[in-house]
C-alpha cells in the first residue's frame, strides 16, 4: 500500500492552491453518468477529461463532474460544458479521442469543436 505520508505531502503542496481555487469562477465539464451513459462508455470519457485537463494545466479553472440521465440516451456519452457568461455546449457520442480534441481546442483555446456537438449529430 502506498504511504499516507505521500498524501500529507500533497496536502502541504496544495495549501495555497485550495484558497485560489475557491475564488475562481470556473468552467464546468459535466458527464452524463446514468445507466445509459455508463453502458455507452462514459467512464473512460470522464477519466480522460480529468487527465487531459490536468495535462493542459487547466485543473485550477476547470472542474470535471457528473450528472444523471440528461434524457437523450441515444446520444450518450453526452458531455455538457458550462462557462460563465456563455451558452452551454453539448457534445454527443463522445470518446476518449474526441475528449482530447475538446480539451485542446475548446477548453484551452476557446474554439468549440462543432462537429462533435449535438447540432451536428446524425
Amino acid at each position: 500500500m502506498k504511504s499516507l505520508a505521500e498524501l500529507a505531502a500533497i496536502r502541504e503542496r496544495m495549501k495555497d492552491k485550495v484558497v485560489l481555487r475557491e475564488g475562481v469562477a470556473g468552467t464546468r465539464v459535466v458527464v452524463g453518468m446514468a445507466t445509459c451513459g455508463i453502458s455507452a462508455g462514459a467512464r473512460p470519457v470522464l477519466n480522460t477529461f480529468v487527465e487531459e485537463v490536468n495535462n493542459e494545466g487547466l485543473a485550477d479553472t476547470v472542474t470535471v463532474t457528473q450528472t444523471g440521465c440528461i434524457g437523450i440516451c441515444q446520444y450518450e456519452p453526452v458531455v455538457e460544458i458550462f462557462e460563465a457568461g456563455k451558452d452551454k455546449v453539448t457534445y454527443v457520442k463522445m470518446t476518449p479521442d474526441k475528449v482530447k480534441r475538446v480539451v485542446a481546442e475548446h477548453l484551452k483555446k476557446g474554439n468549440i469543436v462543432s462537429e462533435y456537438t449535438i447540432g451536428n449529430a446524425q
Binding site: L4, L7, I10
Partner: peptide, 20 residues
C-alpha cells in the same frame, strides 16, 4: 475516511489525490 484525516481541507478530487 482515512485519507481525509491526512488530507484535511484538500478535496478528494484533487488531481494528485486521484492519481495517488
Amino acid at each position: 475516511k482515512q485519507m481525509r484525516e491526512v488530507l484535511g481541507e484538500v478535496p478528494l478530487n484533487t488531481y494528485e489525490v486521484i492519481v495517488w
